Simulated scan of single mutants.
Amino acid sequence: MKNKRVDPTISIVIPIYNVEKYLSKCLDSLLNQTFENFEAILVDDGSKDESYIICKKYEKIDERIRVYHKNNGGLSDARNFGVKQATCDYVVFVDSDDYVNSDYLKCLWKAHIDYNADLVVSGVIRETEDGKVSSVVGSEEICLYSAKEAIKESCYGENIPIYAWGKLYTKKSLLKHPYPVGKYHEDVWTTYLLLDEANVIAAVPEKNYHYIQRENSILHSNIFSTKYFDSIEGAKQIESYVKRKYPDLITASLARLLIESNALLHRACRYPSNYIQASDMVDSYLKGNWKIVLSDKKNNGKVRAEMLLFKISHKLYRLGYLALTK
Rank of each mutant, 00 (worst) to 15 (best):
R267L: 08
I292H: 00
V91D: 11
K236Q: 02
K84D: 10
S231Y: 06
L42Y: 13
I41C: 10
G320S: 12
N37D: 15
L194Y: 07
N208H: 14
K176A: 11
D230Q: 08
K21W: 05
Y246L: 03
L324W: 00
G138A: 08
D95I: 06
Y115P: 05
T87P: 00
V13M: 15
S102T: 10
V43C: 09
N116V: 02
C269A: 11
E260T: 13
L168Q: 01
V92A: 11
V133H: 10
Y169Q: 09
F81V: 07
H220S: 09
A150N: 04
N289H: 15
A111T: 05
V94N: 02
N262Q: 09
I223N: 09
I65R: 01
A147K: 03
G138P: 08
K207G: 06
K171Q: 15
S24C: 04
L265A: 05
S76W: 07
K106C: 04
D49A: 07
R79V: 01
K167Q: 03
I16C: 10
K297M: 12
E149F: 01
H69F: 10
I292Q: 06
E260N: 07
S313E: 06
T34F: 02
R214M: 04
Y52C: 08
N216K: 15
H210S: 02
E215S: 13
E233M: 06
F229S: 00
H112R: 14
V19W: 01
Y156P: 07
K167N: 05
E233I: 15
W109A: 03
K243R: 14
A150L: 00
R66G: 02
Y17C: 06
K57S: 11
V137A: 05
Y241R: 08
N3C: 10
N300K: 04
L258M: 11
K21Q: 13
C143P: 00
S29R: 05
Q277Y: 11
K4T: 13
K106S: 14
S313M: 11
R256I: 01
L31V: 05
L194M: 04
A255E: 04
L319D: 15
H266G: 01
S24F: 00
K60C: 12
E140W: 01
Y228R: 03
S154M: 10
N300Y: 03
F224S: 06
C143V: 07
D28E: 13
I238F: 00
I259H: 05
K207R: 11
Y52S: 01
Y22L: 02
C143Q: 12
E306W: 09
L174Q: 08
R256F: 02
G138N: 00
P161F: 04
P161Q: 13
M307L: 15
V121H: 07
V133T: 15
E153Q: 15
Q213H: 07
Q237G: 00
A263H: 14
D283R: 07
K4E: 13
K302G: 12
H220A: 14
E215N: 04
K236L: 12
L119N: 08
V136T: 15
L265Y: 07
A252W: 02
D7Y: 10
L105A: 09
S134E: 14
E140S: 12
L294H: 03
W165P: 00
P8E: 11
L324H: 12
K315H: 11
